[in-house]
Design a protein around this nucleic acid. Sequence first.
DNA 1: CACCCCACCTGCGTGC
DNA 2: TGCACGCAGGTGGGGT
Length: 296
Amino acid sequence: MPELPEVEVIRRGLAPRLRGRRFNGVAEGPHRLRRQSPAPDFSRWLPGRRVLDLRRRGKYLLLDLEGGATLLFHLGMTGRLLLTPGPPPPLPHVHLTFRLEGGLALLFQDVRRFGQALIFPPGMDLTPLEQVGREPLSPQVTARRLAKMARGRFRPLKNFLLDGRIMAGIGNIYASEIMFAARLHPAAPVGSLSPADWRRLLRHTRRILRAAIARGGTTINDYLDSHGRTGLFQLDLLVYGRHGEACRKCGAAIERLNQGGRSTFFCPCCQTPGAEQGREGRPDGACDAPFDNVSK
DNA sequence: CACCCCACCTGCGTGC
DNA sequence: TGCACGCAGGTGGGGT
């Protein structure tokens, strides 16, 4: 579930309440996450240590602890980090309960258990981050660099966007939204994009990620922030989950495509392969749609 | 190396 | 009502 914007919203929600706060202890649930440190490791490095800062890398959330240890979280598809002021409520699927000073409890709840919670002792490499690509919201990513990484490659644009080793943090929802905004077809071989395509793609990537953060993320089914609140960006989605509905720009029916076992949503009219040049300068809604599309 | 595919889980909506 | 099936925001390991 949580992509870059959702993890960033969680980070911003937790940071002011966790900074400077000491961990007391940890309790495990009956089931383990896909990757989860053994309880003795948490017990060794958490109790008595203060949280110095919270960082995000891609979809990973990192808590820097006093003394140099790092607590790393990944929320997988359905993970939540909930901070409760008092005794934690008896919620289902809570796999870790971190107790902090002042009576706070940080709960890791995850229905599908694809999430990760790992403690790294001081000085140890954060191995999960080694493969994480550059931050799309940082100047480290440039259109030129993306074009270079795509040169000579034939993989579909959608797969390229979802490849976290290239740009970190883009998931299935925002990939579709970004390609729609940039008017690029999800199956387009990445090596075929022009420099202008890459500039447009990066510009919309940043715009959409920032807008989603400002809206508190996207809640489809499960996502809640650290206060237990939903996001609002689902109201701004233009293609994701809108299979069969009318494109908001041209009226054509949004289509669903299966790429690598995952759904991609796109407008067959606005995102026609190779049609970009011919459309420059034309207003929205002026693509050559098949006819029964300005409807509903 | 580049790329594909499935496994890992539970829950929910749909259609028969 | 019940049941089978498909699908869901993520990685990561193994195969071609």
